[in-house]
Write a protein that binds this DNA or RNA. Structure first.
Lengths: 155, 155
DNA sequence: GCTCCTTGCCGAATTCAATTCGATGGCTGT
DNA sequence: ACAGCCATCGAATTGAATTCGGCAAGGAGC
C-alpha cells in the first residue's frame, strides 16, 4: 500500500465534504485530468482509505427528535459476553453509534428516539433488562455535530 | 413539506448505505423510472431530509490510530461562553464529533490522534488550558461503529 | 356523475459524465 | 546513458443524468 501524496489528500478532503462530487469536478479541483483522477479514487477505494459513501439524513425530519447518549457499565465477570452485548447494541434500530471504551464505562451508545416515552422504553427493554448490564446512565443530547477526519498532513 | 412515503424511505435507506449509487440503479431498486427517481431525490435534498453526502475514511490508514472521548465539564458561571467553547471544540482538526449534553458533562468530544503523545498535547493545549473548562475526563476508544438512522416507519 | 386541476409517473431525446486505452514524459536504478 | 516503470494525458466510446412532453390517477367543486 502506497503513501498518500498531496493530491490524494485533496481528493479525500473533497469527497469527505461532498461524496457526490462528479469525477470531472473533482479532477478540476485537484488539478488532474478526469481519467487520472478516477484512477486515484479507485485506488483509494480498493485500499480501504475510503471505506464508504454515505448520505447524512436529518433525524428531526424523520420524526426522530430526541437523541441520547447511554453509558453502559457491564458486570465484572462478563468478559466473554463483551462481544455479544456489543453486537446487540449495534443491532438496535435506534442506535446511531457505539463506542467501546476503556475506563469505568464499557460502552457508550448514541441513540435516536421519537420522544421521551420511546427513550424510556428503549432503555428498559434493550439496556437495563440485559443481564450483562450492571448500570446505565442516560444523557440527553442537545446538539450534535460531526466533521470529517483531518486529511492534511496525516503522519 | 410533504410526508415521506415508502419509496422515499427506500431511497433514503439505499443512499444511506451507498451515497454513490447511480440514479439508474437506485431507480431500479425502488421500482421507479430514473426520471421519477431523480425528482424524488432532488426533493429530499432540497427539503433537507438528505443533509449531506460524505465519504467515510479509515482513520488508521490516515495515520490516526488513536481515538478518544473527552468529557468536558465547564465552570458554573460561564453560561454565556457556552457557544464559543463549543465552536472552539468543533474547530479543532482532531475533532470528529461534538455532543452538547445535559447532565454533569457539558460536552463530549470525539477526537482522533496519531498517538498518545499527540493526545496528551491536545488535551493540555486545547482543553485543560481553556479558562471555561473546569475539568475533563479522557477515555480511550477501543472501537467505534456507526450506522445509519432508522428509516422505516419514522413516527 | 362529470369535469377541471393537480400530482406523480413514464419514456424518448439530449446533454453530459464516466470509463477505456494507447501514447507520452519523467524518474529510478543500473 | 539506457531501460523499465508509473502516473499522466486526451481522444474515443460507452453509459448515465437530465429535460421535457404526454398520460393516468385522485381529489375538489359543481
Amino acid at each position: 500500500m502506497s503513501t498518500l501524496d498531496r493530491i490524494d489528500r485533496e481528493i479525500l478532503a473533497a469527497l469527505q465534504n461532498n461524496a457526490r462530487l462528479s469525477n470531472k469536478e473533482l479532477a478540476a479541483q485537484v488539478g488532474l485530468a478526469p481519467s487520472s483522477c478516477l484512477t486515484r479514487v479507485r485506488r483509494l477505494e480498493t485500499e480501504g482509505v475510503i471505506s464508504a459513501y454515505r448520505a447524512d439524513l436529518d433525524a428531526r425530519k424523520l420524526g426522530l427528535g430526541l437523541q441520547a447518549l447511554i453509558a453502559v457499565q457491564l458486570r465484572l465477570h462478563v468478559g466473554e459476553a463483551f462481544g455479544s452485548i456489543g453486537d446487540h447494541l449495534r443491532s438496535l434500530p435506534e442506535t446511531v453509534a457505539v463506542y467501546c471504551l476503556g475506563g469505568t464505562t464499557d460502552f457508550l451508545v448514541h441513540v435516536v428516539c421519537r420522544d421521551t416515552e420511546h427513550l424510556r422504553i428503549l432503555t428498559i427493554q434493550s439496556f437495563t433488562s440485559r443481564p450483562e448490564v450492571s448500570r446505565i446512565e442516560t444523557s440527553l443530547v442537545f446538539s450534535f455535530s460531526r466533521s470529517g477526519l483531518p486529511v492534511e498532513r496525516g503522519g
